[in-house]
Simulated scan of single mutants.
Amino acid sequence: MASLVDTLTASRGAESAGFLNDIIAHLWPNINIAGGRMLKQVVEPMLDSMLPGPLSTLRFTKLDFGTTPIKLSNVEVHKTKLEGIKLDMDLEWDGLCDIELEGKMVPKVGIEHVKLRGRMAVLLCPLTDIIPLIGAVQFAFINPPTLELDFTDAANIADFALINKVVRKSILNIITSMTVLPNRYLVKLDPSNDYFKTFQHHHGVIRLTIEKATGITGQKKGKVKRFLDKIVKDVPDCYCQVKSISVPRRSGALRHRRTHMSRSGTRRMTFLLRTTNRSSLSI
């Protein structure tokens, strides 16, 4: 099995994805239907808990991804330690679509243009000696992707800024919870696939130490607020928010970790590193 992996990953360097894009283009009508069904079954129930107020009642009434398929490029192939193959590639979708959502006490919201960009990892693991030779395929963005939406109907008028921010943030949160490392979307190719052979261990541990915080000031205050501050001492609520593709050791599947800081003293956070290729850590 090792020789098969060596052969498939021997090319090194980035490659074009012309044949993959041709396959996606031919499959796009099927992807359109399957993707719409997935949004209805998986994403729609999550909107109820992620969108605030009346927006939580929004439901998809039309789902058409249009005729422009997703484009892949800059493909790199790697071996994994557990006899698997990992493909890293750039994903971009700049498509005109026809998506509509309606809810109670909420005007109809339409989306006519979607721009989605990110670096995706496709994991083929485990490799077997039985057709189709691959036990499962796992998809995940290495870092959270960027998303731009063009709205129609009510969302394109007075409520554009609010709806754009809330809906886009909710969609990104859903994508992150399902398909951004360490979360992967798994598709079994072999019904008898062994999960323990599919699971990929983390590469290592990152320990981040925040030494101190300086130059912290509160919000601008009016005369009344400044007067009250003389009576009641107001200390700014200082914190550091860390965003990573790895998982904080003690906080489940959270990717955004926020730790409160004092003006002096240190804070330490531990992250498990799921990938070493183009991952990011922002503070």
Rank of each mutant, 00 (worst) to 15 (best):
I130M: 12
M46I: 01
L101P: 08
S177K: 13
C97Y: 09
T179P: 03
A121S: 11
I99K: 07
A121L: 09
F141N: 00
L58E: 00
E100W: 14
P144D: 02
F65W: 11
T146C: 08
V109M: 06
P69Q: 03
T80P: 06
T57D: 07
C125R: 13
G118W: 13
F160N: 15
G110H: 07
E92A: 10
R168L: 03
D150M: 15
P144H: 10
I131V: 14
A136W: 11
L47D: 00
L149G: 01
K71A: 02
L172M: 03
V122K: 11
T67K: 13
I111D: 00
K108T: 12
G95M: 02
P107K: 06
F160E: 13
T152G: 11
G53I: 06
T68I: 09
H78R: 14
S177C: 11
G118I: 07
L123T: 10
L58A: 00
A136M: 09
M178K: 13
L58R: 02
E100G: 07
P52Y: 09
T152M: 08
V166E: 01
A161L: 09
N156F: 09
P145I: 01
G103L: 01
N74I: 05
A121P: 09
D64T: 12
T146M: 05
H78Y: 15
I70A: 06
S170W: 05
L96T: 07
M105N: 13
F65L: 08
I163T: 06
A158Y: 15
L116G: 02
L162Q: 03
K169T: 12
I157T: 14
F65T: 01
L82H: 12
L127G: 05
I175M: 00
L91V: 12
L181D: 00
F151V: 00
R59G: 04
L47N: 01
F141W: 03
W93P: 05
K165S: 07
G95H: 02
P107S: 02
L133K: 07
G110N: 05
P54S: 14
I175Q: 00
L133R: 08
V167C: 04
E102M: 07
T67P: 05
G95Y: 03
N164F: 07
I130K: 15
K169W: 08
S177L: 09
F139D: 01
K81F: 14
G110T: 04
N164K: 13
K62G: 03
F139H: 08
K104I: 10
L82W: 11
L162H: 08
D129E: 06
A136I: 03
L55I: 02
V166K: 08
L124D: 00
L91T: 09
T146G: 07
N164Q: 08
L133F: 15
L147Y: 10
W93V: 04
K169C: 12
L51N: 01
D88H: 15
F151E: 00
C125S: 10
A161K: 12
R59I: 02
F141Y: 05
K115V: 06
P126V: 00
L87K: 07
N173D: 11
D153Y: 14
T61Q: 05
V75I: 14
I171H: 04
S177I: 06
G103M: 00
E148T: 06
K104V: 10
N143K: 13
I142H: 10
G103D: 00
I111G: 02
L47Y: 04
A140H: 10
H78K: 15
H78Q: 11
N143A: 08
V77C: 12
F141T: 00
F141V: 01
P69D: 00
